[in-house]
């Protein structure tokens, strides 16, 4: 395997995906607006409950009562996790819909490069919408995050990404076998929304649910990002979050690759790759 050639494949797939994406401007507009509407809805709800922009109860649970920043940071990190879930599961299903999956699989390159190219394109668009989300939240709701810590936050996100990709690989494999992805990913998205500390700290979850939350890498990424952007923590203070993230990176990348390879082999042997 030539690394340089594989990198070229990743870039070519990313370019192709971005080109396709921009051909549907209504969907682009929708993708830009929707995260803003979700943030908006969550903040109106919070303000209606609390009556001010500071929650005393949240401060006792999460060391910050500034729920706007708390929620916006949670939503930003989860956007990347959800975009990987949807992007990677749709990656091969979309090729199936277009009738190009078999041709893609015949290409003389690693399937992982194709998947990575698709993931990269969805990460790039998500990053753009996240920036927009940050700007609008700052303008409308006076978002109070420490922008000076942004490089540390990005570093943390980079540590978390391999684990998100690993989950995505396993999903792509499952979609190869079971075809229809939307119900499954919808369910996973809802489950993640419940288990991840996006708009509430984990302590409000019943204890048995909390154990499942700790098995999900985005949990550590969200907590870490909040510590950096809201509580001004340094990188050394985040070591208890970074170590589990590195563990999950290795775990999910290995598991995801194994699941994908096993499913790929299975559908190839059964001859069901082209089945719709």
């Amino acid at each position: 395997m030539n690394v340089l050639n594989e990198l070229k494949v990743i870039l070519a797939v990313t370019k192709k995906e971005l080109k396709l994406y921009l051909r549907y401007p209504v969907w682009v507009l929708f993708d830009a607006l929707m995260p803003l509407l979700w943030v908006l809805s969550s903040i109106i709800y919070s303000k209606a409950l609390v009556g001010s922009s500071y929650s005393i109860h949240l401060a006792t649970l999460a060391t910050t009562g500034d729920y706007v920043s708390f929620i916006v940071v949670g939503m930003i990190v989860s956007s990347f996790a959800f975009s990987t879930l949807w992007g990677m599961s749709y990656a091969l299903r979309g090729e199936q819909w277009s009738g190009t999956l078999e041709t893609t699989f015949l290409a003389p390159c690693s399937r992982f490069s194709i998947l990575l190219g698709k993931a990269l394109s969805s990460m790039l668009t998500t990053s753009l919408w996240v920036v927009l989300q940050l700007i609008v939240s700052t303008l409308i709701f006076n978002l109070n995050v420490r922008l000076i810590n942004l490089p540390i936050a990005l570093f943390l996100l980079l540590i978390a990404l391999p684990s998100f990709l690993g989950i995505g690989f396993s999903l792509a494999g499952i979609v190869l076998e079971f075809k229809e992805h939307s119900a499954f990913v919808n369910f996973l998205t809802a489950l993640f929304s419940l288990l991840l500390p996006i708009s509430y700290p984990l302590v409000v979850l019943p204890p048995f649910l909390r154990y499942f939350s700790y098995l999900l890498p985005p949990t550590y990424a969200i907590e870490g990002m909040r510590n950096v952007l809201i509580l001004d923590s340094s990188l050394s203070e985040l070591i208890n979050l970074i170590l589990p993230l590195i563990f999950f990176d290795i775990f999910w990348l290995l598991l995801g690759s194994l699941v994908f390879l096993a499913e790929e082999k299975r559908v190839m042997k059964k001859g069901t790759l082209g089945y719709y």
Partner: peptide, 16 residues
């Protein structure tokens, strides 16, 4: 119910 539950947890976190 899965969509409703986070709303309720969010409310409990905010007002106790």
């Amino acid at each position: 119910v899965f969509w409703l539950t986070p709303m309720i947890f969010q409310g409990e976190a905010l007002i106790g």
